[in-house]
Amino acid sequence: MAKLLIIAEHRNGKLSDATMELCRIAKEIAPGLGLEPVAAVFAKDDSLAKEVAKYIPEVFAVCDAAVEGYTSDAYAQAVKAVVEAKDVKGVLIPQTYDGVDYAAKAALAIGAGIVSNCNKAVIEGGKLVLTRNIYNGKLQETKSVTTDKFVVTFEKGAYDPAEAGAAGAVSTVAVSFTPSRTKVKEIIAMSAGGVDISQAKIIVAGGRGLKDADKYKDVVLPLAAKLGAEYAGSRPVIDSGWTDASRQVGQSGKTVTPDLYLALGISGAVQHVAGMKGSKCIVAVNKDPEAPIFNIATYGIVADLFEVVPGIMANL
C-alpha cells in the first residue's frame, strides 16, 4: 500500500511535540486517502526511531553522520530517498523553524505541490482538503494539491499529540548523501538574562497598536504597576526596541499562562497566540472588531486603547 509519511523532528536527542502531533494527523487522514501512516527519523542512530514507533505503526530510520545535526540539503535528500524507496505519496512536515527550512525544498525534490502552514486536514470525496490562515489570521482558505505526490506542513499546536501505544516496526533506509553546502558552527542561546515573566499572575501586554516607545511606556507600564502585573509585548514591540527581549511573548519569545492576560493593540497572530493561549482569562482591547485576538479572548472591548486604558485605571 502506498504511504503517508511524517518526518520526525528532534533537537539535542529529544523529539519535538510537533512530531507526535503529525503522528495523530497521519493516522487520522491516511485511511480516507487509502494510505498507510508511517514515519521517518533522520538521526545518527535508530534510538529516536524506536521512540517514534510508539506513536505510529511503521518507522524508517535513516542513520547517518550527515543527519546527526540538521541541514536543509541533507533533510531534502533523505526525504527524497525514503519517498522513492517506500512508495510514499504524501509527506507531512511540521511548520517549525527546521520544517520551514526544508519542506519546500523536499517538495521540489519529489515533484510535489506543497500546501504550508495548515491547521486542519479533512478528506472530501477522497481528496485531501487543507485549511490555513491567510491575512494574518483574519481570514482562512482551503486548498488542495493537484500533483500526484503532496507535501503539507502543519502549524504547531493545531492538533493534540498522539498517545503512545504498542511499539511499531523500525527498519533502516540507506541514503547516499552529497555534502551539505551549509555548515552549522554552533547553536547558541540568545535569551539569557532579563526578567522571568513566565511566573507572573497578571501580564499587561502591548502590541504595535501602542504606536511608539513613549506611548508604550506611558500606557502599559502604569497599568501593569497598578495591577501588580508584569508588562510584556508582541514581537514588533521588541523588534522596535520599546522594551527588552526577555518580555516578548510568543513562538519566538516566552510562553506564559497567567490568571489574567491583557492584550492591548495586539492583533492575535498565531505566533503570538502560541505563547499566551494557555492564560486563564484573556482580555483584548483592539479597535478592529475583526482582529483574530477576539477569537480566543474571554472579554473583548472594540475601541481605541488610548481611551479604554484610562477608564480601566480609574476603576481599579
Partner: peptide, 16 residues
C-alpha cells in the same frame, strides 16, 4: 501545483 478552493471568515467557538 496546488488549487485554491475557497476563502472564509474563521468561526470561533471561543469568541470573546
Amino acid at each position: 501545483r496546488t488549487a485554491f478552493i475557497k476563502m472564509f471568515v474563521p468561526v470561533s467557538d471561543t469568541m470573546a
